[in-house]
Design a protein around this nucleic acid. Structure first.
Ligand SMILES: [Mn+2]
Ligand SMILES: [Mn+2]
Ligand SMILES: [Zn+2]
Ligand SMILES: [Zn+2]
Lengths: 145, 145
DNA sequence: CTCTATAATTGTATTAATTACAAAAATATA
DNA sequence: TATATTTTTGTAATTAATACAATTATAGAG
């Protein structure tokens, strides 16, 4: 990890009024390096192997503060565990029912016609699709033969 | 509960290949009477007061079988607990960050332009919005004064 | 109707994600 | 340097949901 890379991460935190502690930088770095929607536990497992003193509570606290500050977003597509995503711009999430993979897709939410939310202040939008990813779809077809 | 009402509920279950046991009819009846997206625990609490022998496991089993059969849908908008909805036709869900109310809204999902899911088989679609409902929005404004 | 196989239900134990909280360590400020 | 504040730790608690074996109810055969 180069010095200026750390500076960029620090700056990202400071801009959101989050003090750039060592652990917070590490969590943020992890999120940038793993955009496949990791769980808190996956983040902890990886970072704990590098930083043996790291506590799981710190990982949870850090992730929650990131979400609250709008630096990351939490997605709860399967209802079992929350996952974290450093990409906060609007996009949808597809979850494969078979292999569990979570894949981004692009959507134009502004084009979505909505009725019944007159007078509501909408601040968050999540679109979750589910089904079978291409490879699992193939496997499913082969099994039926 | 009139006799023919029970017959209609029974028929609804049989059509989905679910045997119409007493408990299952009661859970289905509850879902029709409470379309405000109850949790498994809320359903259990109410039915348990009428049927003291009812087990929570039965409520969970029943709800899961309803979802699997496409008779109801599960929504996990807050990431904490699953909620159940007897309305399976496409609609979005708004959750108020302040009072926790979950409100339906109508959407035209077919009009939603999606890119990045070529080759995927999409079988489920969920749209979750969040923010402030009209009354909570008013309260929020008043507090800031 | 009686017997038996199958399905449904119960109740308890267990799992697992997340939070609560107080003590300890680190950091910033005077 | 001394003190106040923030961060982190570690453990305990919470809680939604599932696992599973025992019990009860139901349906079909004879
Ligand atoms: Mn994403
Ligand atoms: Mn609904
Ligand atoms: Zn897959
Ligand atoms: Zn509200």
């Amino acid at each position: 990890m180069t010095e200026d890379r750390v500076e960029i991460l620090k700056n990202e935190l400071v801009k959101k009024d989050i003090r750039p502690s060592y652990h917070r930088i590490k969590v943020l770095e992890y999120l940038h390096a793993h955009e496949n929607h990791p769980t808190a536990d996956e983040i902890y497992a990886e970072l704990h192997s590098q930083i043996p003193t790291l506590s799981k509570t710190t990982v949870y606290n850090t992730l929650n503060s990131f979400v609250e500050a709008g630096l990351a977003r939490a997605i709860s597509i399967d209802g079992v565990e929350r996952r974290f995503d450093i990409t906060v711009i609007d996009h949808g999430h597809f979850r494969c029912d078979r292999c569990g993979a979570i894949i981004n897709f692009s959507i134009d939410l502004n084009a979505l016609a909505v009725h019944g939310l007159e007078g509501f202040q909408v601040t968050g939008k999540n679109v979750y699709f589910s089904g079978l990813c291409p490879s699992c779809n193939q496997l499913q077809i082969q099994e039926k033969e």
